[in-house]
Nucleic acid binder design. Structure first.
Lengths: 339, 339
DNA sequence: GAGCGCTATACATACGTATTCAAGACGCTA
DNA sequence: TAGCGTCTTGAATACGTATGTATAGCGCTC
């Protein structure tokens, strides 16, 4: 039954050549005559031969595999950030197009992920996705650099030039979202963010928010700022706390769609209508357009982001150097911010 | 500079033993003395040694890697079924717990996926997820069986006993959803499904729907049935077509949440309120509870499903035999179906 | 016609591990 | 003390590929 899988020797025997010739023929070496190549290809086709990934990876010193690390402390039953999820399909496709496989994994901040993947030669490089507190994993990033591991990170390039990063133009996104609200006549715009120095993206969005306000002659006030992790529940709580603190706001800019959706729920629960109180989010996850009212948000193109991430990583692997990329964002206006 | 990565020979030298002993010590062979094992482990730790996956995979004849195939004709920019996405995290985690890595891939129906993964020894087995028309890929499934490839499929076990499957109790789900609507006093319940023999899950849900109706003394009518792929847009169109055909319905049971959400939008657009016209979905994707009103739906537990999928596949790989599993479902009542 | 360059192929080997087989050390029994 | 079993280790080897080096064939020049 189930016979042994064919090796390059089997192909060689059928094609009447040596094993090395088979290898060369299949990998497109120019030193193989057309006639020979044809015979080899035919034999390979006939036996359904595929190069053994393990043997090949052992001989060359790479695997043509990338590892995708969701780099966050993921509680047992929590949801993955939907924006990252929307990156997944495009990343897989891009990898395939570039001849790579994609390994996927979640990693606790506490684990030894930084040595596992490259050291065991499972992957040639790593894509890091994480919305956790950056300061917590920065030391591991440094160790990665130290060991010469290739990696690329989705995040913010402004957070200390460590490794290659691909990011959205967060400052501009914050600026456009806020400007849009100002144009709608809003003046008291709450900012729902995430606190601390560990979230550079949020800080950049906050800077854009401030710039827009100042351009309109308004000085940003701290009482309009409240923190919420990217989850429906925290967004809801953030608005509840604003209301109970008696803060008088007429619009909300939340730095994540999930929080924005939670915010809308809290508003509606409090008897406030949207867009009477206008809401703008950030990300443009699928649920944003399904929400009611559909959510105005800063759109990050997941296809573009995914491709930039993969391309940057592959470039780092293959040519040793990679450049940071900042991707443009675009405001998508829906009913949550305009009457 | 980046020095050569350590091999088991390096560890052997430090620990003062031979390479085979290192291999045995690390893989937990009982024939290594405690003292020796300690020395080996210490040396490995010191050099940050990790077993080379390629060499190991070549020597043994498996890779301890599973491949996840989103098995569908995925148009360039379409979204992945959110339910599958919610399976992802739990699957990855389960794989890690069982000592496997997970490769992820999308495959066109037309591609040679069925030979690629196992033949090139990238993976020891395959998880197949797909909501495409089953009849289209059935021949490939047969080829997979023929070649002795290990795989498990999310779907319906009733569709022809080919390979191992893990599925929800679709018939029961359809029954409970419909019974719930009947208890709310609904009598004219539209069924939004997906057509043809290629979707056994949908057929099972339809059977549950019929059983519930008949139990209430109602004979199902074809005019209440309309087809829609699992997408917001098609769900919306389905309701529009019901309305424009003048069908008088007072509730909707849609076999996917995304279609159900689209249906709610169409209702609201037509000036009909939900839950005045009650809506029930299937899946319980994250967006279901975020919709407005929050969607009543048949909940499939993604953690349980993911674990069943992985466990079944690993069992098939390691012991050669695997059993189909049917997972229970549970109705989650939210505001879209009750006043 | 000897020497040269070029093409196409073969030979030999290395990648790093896991396993089979053999053997050494040791304690125990008769 | 010879013999035997147990426990632990080492030597040898195979997994399947890719590549550096060598070689054979051939057409060409001077």
């Amino acid at each position: 039954m189930m016979q042994r899988r064919p090796t390059s020797f089997d192909i060689a025997a059928i094609a009447g050549v040596s094993q090395p010739t088979v290898s060369r023929a299949l990998s497109g070496s120019p030193s193989v005559s057309e006639e020979t190549r044809r015979r080899v290809l035919a034999a390979a086709e006939q036996l359904n031969y595929k190069v053994d990934k393990n043997a090949s990876g052992l001989r060359r010193q790479h695997t043509k595999t990338l590892a995708l690390l969701f780099f966050e402390e993921l509680p047992e039953h929590s949801e993955i950030n939907p924006f990252y999820l929307s990156l997944l399909g495009p990343m897989v496709r891009r990898c395939a197009d570039r001849g790579y496989d994609l390994l996927i994994s979640f990693q606790q901040l506490s684990s030894d992920w930084h040595v596992d993947y490259e050291d065991s030669r499972k992957a040639d490089g790593i894509v890091l996705l994480g919305y956790g507190n950056y300061l917590q994993y920065r030391p591991k990033l440094e160790k990665l650099v130290e060991r010469g591991t290739h990696f690329v990170r989705w995040g913010s390039e402004g957070d200390g030039e460590i490794g290659a990063t691909v990011s959205s133009d967060n400052e501009q996104g914050g600026f456009e979202a806020t400007t849009h609200l100002l144009r709608q006549g809003r003046r008291r715009i709450a900012f729902i963010g995430t606190g601390g120095a560990g979230f550079p993206e949020v800080q950049e969005r906050w800077r854009g928010y401030c710039r827009a306000l100042r351009a309109a002659g308004i000085e940003p006030e701290d009482r309009f700022r409240v923190d919420a992790a990217p989850s429906e529940c925290e967004g809801r709580a953030a608005v509840a706390s604003l209301i109970s603190a008696g803060i008088d706001f007429d619009a909300i800019f939340a730095v994540s769609d999930v929080a924005a959706i939670g915010a809308m729920h809290a508003l509606q629960q409090a008897g406030l209508s949207v867009p009477e109180t206008a809401v703008v989010g950030f990300d443009d996850i699928p649920a944003a357009s399904l929400a009611s009212p559909p959510l105005t948000t800063v759109t990050q193109d997941p296809h573009r982001a995914a491709e930039a991430l993969i391309d940057t990583l592959i470039q780092s692997i293959e040519s040793g150097a990679a450049e940071d990329q900042v991707l443009p964002v675009r405001l998508t206006v829906r009913e949550s911010s305009v009457p």
